[in-house]
């Protein structure tokens, strides 16, 4: 049977990819941020997952505003990265696992979590940068990956409670897959940031730290907030933190904290790396 080894959170901002591409990760501005990935990389190296399910939001590469699915699952063999408008060289395409994807799609819909199934899916920095930060950049990626896109771009976006439910359904889906596979769930994006408006530049360290603590130990805590309340505390783009709840929901309630790292600011954001391990 497939097993979920644990979950990892990561920022996915474009600047992370640029810092990696330009060899800046040990520059003073970046050093503490990237060094904090070390224990997460070590854990991944020890547990050796076969596949990562990456919970992220598309930023206008795969989805335009003509159709905006609340939840969209990649159901393909391969997921290419492409030019997002900045003329950067795309990274190598990612291998998926179509059989597992379709199994997850079936199970989720059976559990009344209706998702959009994508047989062609371009993956942008939101998907690519956490993988690069955790595994490095490769021509042949060392793991397979499945994109699970959550709409955090065009409101209404799903509630924190809904994301937690999706995660719990995802756990059932993965754990009912007959093949022996080791899976890790990446919750990406966040933490607090606001890119637009006179309130741009908002970072709320206190809220971020509370989020990291509660997502690890008491994820229901997040569900008390409306999306308006989360944006009030964490900024409009800080709403991305709901994607961490998908990851958290997919883990056991008593998942063990392996690593907690927080850094601010990185570009416009507070950034957290959380590694949670399921106990078997």
């Amino acid at each position: 049977m497939a097993r979920i080894l644990g979950g990892v959170t990561s920022s996915h901002i474009p600047a992370v990819g640029n810092a990696i591409a330009n060899g800046l990760t040990q520059e003073p501005y970046w050093k503490r941020f990237f060094d904090g990935y070390g224990p997460a990389q070590k854990w991944l190296d020890e547990v050796k997952p076969d596949l990562a399910i990456v919970v992220y939001n598309d930023h206008g590469l795969n989805f335009f505003l003509d159709k905006v699915p609340t939840f969209a699952l990649g159901c393909a063999d391969v997921y290419p990265n492409e030019d997002e408008g900045w003329g950067l060289k795309p990274v190598a395409p990612f291998k998926g696992d179509a059989e597992l994807s379709w199994h997850i799609a079936e199970s989720l819909v059976e559990q009344e979590i209706d998702i959009c199934m994508c047989q062609e899916m371009l993956v942008d920095h939101g998907f690519v940068n956490p993988i690069r930060a955790l595994w490095g950049t490769h021509e042949n990626w060392p793991i397979k990956a499945i994109p699970l896109a959550v709409n955090t771009v065009q409101h209404p976006v799903p509630t924190a409670a809904r994301c937690l439910k999706l995660g719990r359904a995802l756990r059932k889906a993965v754990e009912s897959y007959p093949e022996d596979m080791k899976i890790v769930i990446l919750g990406t994006g966040g933490l607090s940031h606001q890119l637009q408006g006179e309130r741009a530049g908002l970072i709320n360290v206190e809220f971020d730290l509370e989020c990291m603590e509660k997502i690890a130990t008491d994820p229901e805590w997040m569900t008390q907030f409306s999306n308006a309340e989360i944006m009030e505390k964490a900024g409009t783009e800080g709403i991305e933190s709901i994607m961490w709840l998908v990851m958290r929901g997919a883990l056991q309630d008593d998942a063990k904290i392996i690593h907690k790292h927080y850094h601010a600011p990185i570009s416009n954001t507070g950034a957290g790396v959380l590694v949670l391990e399921n106990q078997y």
């Binding site: 771009v153 409101h155 006179e198 741009a200 308006a228 309340e229 944006m231 009030e232 409009t236």
Partner: peptide, 11 residues
């Protein structure tokens, strides 16, 4: 509710 957050334009 989010329209009352100052300096913020929710998309």
């Amino acid at each position: 509710e989010y329209e009352d957050i100052p300096g913020t334009y929710v998309f």
